[in-house]
């Protein structure tokens, strides 16, 4: 279990705002690591920095032994590092099927292999199969989240970045989404999960980092943090 992703002392500006200050963390192969924090703590900014949508001011991000912090977003995904963005961002005018097809955009390993993954995604997310010919914009929030995850899985990622998958979903659906995340991880995909729903995130994660106003405030085993007084007060409401 080597280090798959390591973020080293990164600084990111969002316009003139110094959104991320000297943040460092790492994710080992096979783990679920969660980054928890309140609104505006810099979680999404961190995600965008990893996937190449935002440029770093300083610092370095390595993935599978390769420096990716200077790479363009559309090249990073080709290394098997996929992101499910905040707010799902499915292509609402395209059908479910076309959205998944877009997920396989970078693949060049033949129709058959892609078809296999279609079957895999539909097995994992049966609701999508029923709605495969529907425009994605007509799906419910939960279904859109599943589609966004299915779309990311279509590129056969080694690592999945999940940004607030529970946002705006009912508790029941949140449970379902987290079950899926666990299953995806069991199938060998390393997961970095960004969440406001700290309770759920700490339940499924191996390790966790607490992000506060752009800096890492705490880190440790997920179970350890779940029992930490400060974390309980600030993020678990108990």
């Amino acid at each position: 279990m080597g280090e798959m992703l390591s973020v080293k002392n990164i600084n990111v500006f969002y316009g003139s705002i110094h959104a991320i200050r000297d943040v460092s963390f790492h994710v080992n192969e096979g783990e679920i690591v969660t980054l928890i924090g309140a609104n505006g703590a810099g979680k999404t900014t961190t995600m965008h920095a990893i996937s190449g949508l935002l440029k770093l001011q300083s610092g370095e991000i390595d993935y599978c032994g390769q420096t990716i912090s200077k790479m363009e977003a559309h090249k990073i995904i080709r290394l098997g590092l996929a992101q499910v963005p905040e707010g799902r961002r499915v292509f609402s005018g395209l059908t479910v099927q076309q959205n998944l097809q877009m997920g396989a955009y970078v693949r060049r390993d033949g129709k058959e292999a892609i078809q296999n993954d279609f079957d895999m995604v539909f097995e994992l997310l049966p609701r999508l199969k029923e709605r495969r010919n529907q425009p994605a914009g007509t799906l419910s929030g939960g279904e859109q989240q599943m589609l966004a995850m299915g779309r990311a899985l279509m590129c056969k990622p080694k690592m999945l970045l999940l940004d607030e998958p529970s946002m705006g979903l009912s508790p029941l659906l949140v449970k379902e989404i987290f079950k899926i995340i666990r299953e995806v991880n069991r199938n060998g995909v390393t997961v970095l999960l960004v969440e406001q729903n700290a309770k759920m995130a700490l339940e499924i994660a191996n390790r966790a980092y607490v992000l506060e106003t752009g800096t890492i405030k705490m880190e440790g085993e997920a179970t350890e943090l779940a029992n930490n007084i400060e974390v309980r007060k600030a993020y678990l409401g108990c």
Binding site: A73, H74, I77, A82, P85, R89, Y105, A152
Partner: peptide, 22 residues
């Protein structure tokens, strides 16, 4: 594939980039 990339970019540039579209 290039046509799909165009559709994706027109809907959501950032998400299209995350799919690997240049």
């Amino acid at each position: 594939s290039a046509g799909h990339a165009m559709l994706a970019v027109s809907e959501d540039r950032g998400a299209a980039q995350l799919m690997g579209v240049n």
